Computed example of a mutant assay.
Amino acid sequence: MRLSSTARAVLATVTTLVLAVIYLPLGVVLVNSFSTSTTLTWPPPGFTLEWWGRAFRNVGALEAIGTSVQIALGATAISLVLGTLVAIALQRYRFFGRDVVSLLVILPIALPGIVTGIALNNFFRTIIDVRLGIFTIIVAHATFCIVTVFNNVIARLRRTGTSLEEASADLGAGIWTTFRLVTFPQLRSALLAGGLLAFALSFDEIIVTTFTAGSGVTTLPIWIFENLFRPNQAPIVSVIAVMLVAVSVVPIWLAQRLAGADQAQH
């Protein structure tokens, strides 16, 4: 389809405006992390690296980062196992209620976070009577992180088909041998991409985390929210926010590269 010069100009203008609305605020946060001001003022009166040094020495922030990494790794591990198993079951087998199960697996990522948070909070506290903490956050994050793994794996299974697996079975290989030597190598990049996306999704989640964390557990997003308006903490929060953006962007970029490389091969 060929666009006229006017249409291209309008499209370019709209795209530029949308990208500016999305990324200019991130640029402001980056600049404020070097500001000499102790509040989020604009324009900055001067520039300094002091806040970056303080951020790396801030015990609360470092502990929050460690907690977020621990939770994200746990949620990613659960998502990789369950997302892969569900994807294989739904793609390779036909059974009653298959479409309903597929919908139920995808639904958590479409639900508002506050709804998921309230539901899980009630489930943990009143139905199974589990103390809120890191374990409940990991389980809560896994409920929506599993979708990223599931989508990547089932898309790969649809592209690869079953011919190689059937050939393996014809040659006498069992289910686990076929999975280890045939299915898993085909899914490897999809699993890596899904795992990276799941990690990024869990690492910066705050709404569901707030409802399932309980007292005494502080993830990095919660630490940022609690310290944003405290005296002299705003510049340090800006530094941590820049680090959070970097940690979130890298897995997504790697996942995109992996998906692009896989599409090129197929």
Results as ranks from 00 to 15, higher is better:
L24T: 08
V31K: 06
S33R: 04
F34R: 06
P25K: 13
S33W: 00
V28Q: 09
T41A: 14
W42F: 14
P43E: 01
L26G: 12
L40K: 08
T39L: 12
P44M: 06
E50W: 05
A7W: 03
L24C: 04
R8L: 13
L17W: 09
R8V: 10
V18T: 07
P44V: 12
P25W: 06
S35T: 09
W51V: 06
L11E: 03
L49I: 09
L11Q: 12
P43H: 06
W51T: 07
P43T: 06
W42N: 02
S5A: 14
G46Q: 01
S35Q: 07
T6K: 14
A7L: 10
L24P: 01
V10K: 07
T16W: 14
P44L: 05
L24H: 08
L11R: 11
L11C: 11
P43Q: 04
T48Y: 02
S37A: 15
L17S: 05
L40S: 10
V31Q: 05
L24I: 15
L11G: 15
S37G: 07
F47K: 08
T16K: 12
L24V: 14
V21T: 06
T48C: 04
Y23P: 07
S5D: 13
F47M: 08
W42S: 03
W51A: 05
N32G: 10
T16C: 13
L30M: 08
L24N: 02
L24A: 07
V21G: 00
L17N: 04
T13R: 06
V21R: 06
A12G: 11
G27P: 02
V14D: 00
G46M: 02
V14C: 05
G46N: 01
S35W: 08
A7Y: 04
V29F: 00
T13A: 15
L49Q: 04
S5Y: 07
A20R: 14
T48P: 02
L49Y: 03
T13L: 11
L40Q: 09
V21F: 11
S33K: 03
L19P: 02
S5Q: 11
T48K: 05
P44A: 15
V29M: 02
P45E: 03
V18H: 03
L19I: 13
V21K: 04
Y23D: 03
T15H: 07
R8G: 10
N32A: 14
T6W: 07
P43G: 01
V14W: 07
Y23F: 15
P45S: 15
S37Q: 06
P45R: 14
L11K: 09
V28K: 13
